[in-house]
Computed example of a mutant assay.
Amino acid sequence: MNSVAGKTVVITGSSRGVGADTAKILAGEGANVVVNYRQKAPRANKVIKEIEEAGGKGIAVGADLTDTESVENLFKQAVDTFGSLDVLILNASGGMESDLGEDYAMRLNRDAQDAALTAALKHLSDGGRVVFVTSHQAHFIREVETMDAYVEVAKSKRAGEDQLTSRIPEMTERGVDFVVVSGDMIEGTVTATLLNRAQPGALEARREAAGKLLSVNEFATEIAKMVTADVPTGHVELAGGSGDFPADGGAAQPVG
């Protein structure tokens, strides 16, 4: 895929933050974007309004990734509105919430990602791409320690990455590429805010260790680039960070 112009891109969890900025960037490049939200319709509609005011095309579709029926509807609305599904960006994640059950992190970050891929593969076009967004703290969790408050989330996101990676042969058979984009802690995200609240000073410590943390828009720009980047399926793109994390070699390989 040399250009996203005219292509349909579904971005999960894109009513705010990194997902919203990714949607705006890709819409500015001519993509038809589907902004997915779980509960905050007004926020998602605001993103679409900004996209349309800038001359882009998009729709907002509510879907809880842990609900199979609503996920099926997400992709159906994308295809019904724009005629195709060409790119899926799996950006939604969570697990630090205290009111959604002890197993919520694994249900969302592994099981729901896997189910979303299954639903999307019914519609993804030949030559399409799936992009999984994660963090260095999750990608390298078996090799590098992270903050106590983030350990279970990190493990669940790595489990999700491993599960999706195991399905590369299936995606390849359908003509679909798979790419992972991993970022260090991102300034201004909900996760960074929650971690800093759980462990005061964590954000400043990470900023000092890394030298610089990417902004929401800078990380979104890296994700948008990987939608059309000429890389092999299974590639892992590391955005930001420092020598705290080992060299990855660019291949999404389950650890251990």
Rank of each mutant, 00 (worst) to 15 (best):
A5E: 11
A41Q: 12
E50N: 13
T118N: 05
I141M: 07
T12H: 01
S93G: 15
D103Y: 11
N73C: 00
T233C: 10
P42F: 09
L108P: 02
R207L: 03
G249K: 09
T12L: 01
L85G: 10
A5M: 09
N36G: 04
V236I: 07
L85N: 06
T12E: 02
V34G: 00
E152V: 04
L238Y: 01
R43P: 02
L214P: 15
L121D: 08
A31Y: 11
S182L: 14
G243M: 09
Y104N: 12
F132C: 15
A119F: 08
A239R: 03
R142I: 04
V231G: 03
N36Q: 01
S166M: 13
R38T: 12
E53K: 12
Q253H: 00
P246C: 13
D64T: 02
V71T: 09
M106I: 07
P254L: 03
D21Y: 04
V153A: 07
G250W: 05
A239D: 08
F178T: 06
V4G: 11
R167C: 10
Q199K: 13
L108Y: 02
S125K: 09
T81R: 00
G128F: 02
T172G: 11
M185V: 15
R38D: 08
G17I: 01
M96V: 11
R107N: 14
A44H: 05
E187I: 12
P232K: 05
H136G: 04
A41M: 12
G55S: 10
N2I: 13
V179C: 06
L121T: 14
A224G: 10
L203R: 06
M106L: 14
E143K: 05
A202P: 04
G234C: 09
A198G: 05
V255P: 01
T81M: 02
T233K: 08
A119L: 04
K49H: 14
A149E: 13
A138N: 05
N45R: 07
L214R: 14
T193G: 14
D126H: 08
I48N: 02
N196R: 07
G250Y: 06
D64F: 00
V9T: 08
N45A: 09
A138Y: 02
D114V: 14
A120R: 00
S156C: 03
Q253A: 09
P246A: 15
R43C: 06
H136F: 07
L213F: 03
K76P: 00
E204H: 04
R38G: 10
G13I: 00
N217S: 15
T191N: 05
D99S: 15
A224L: 06
L74F: 04
G243Q: 07
H235K: 14
E72K: 03
G183D: 13
E145I: 07
Q137L: 13
R174Y: 09
G127I: 03
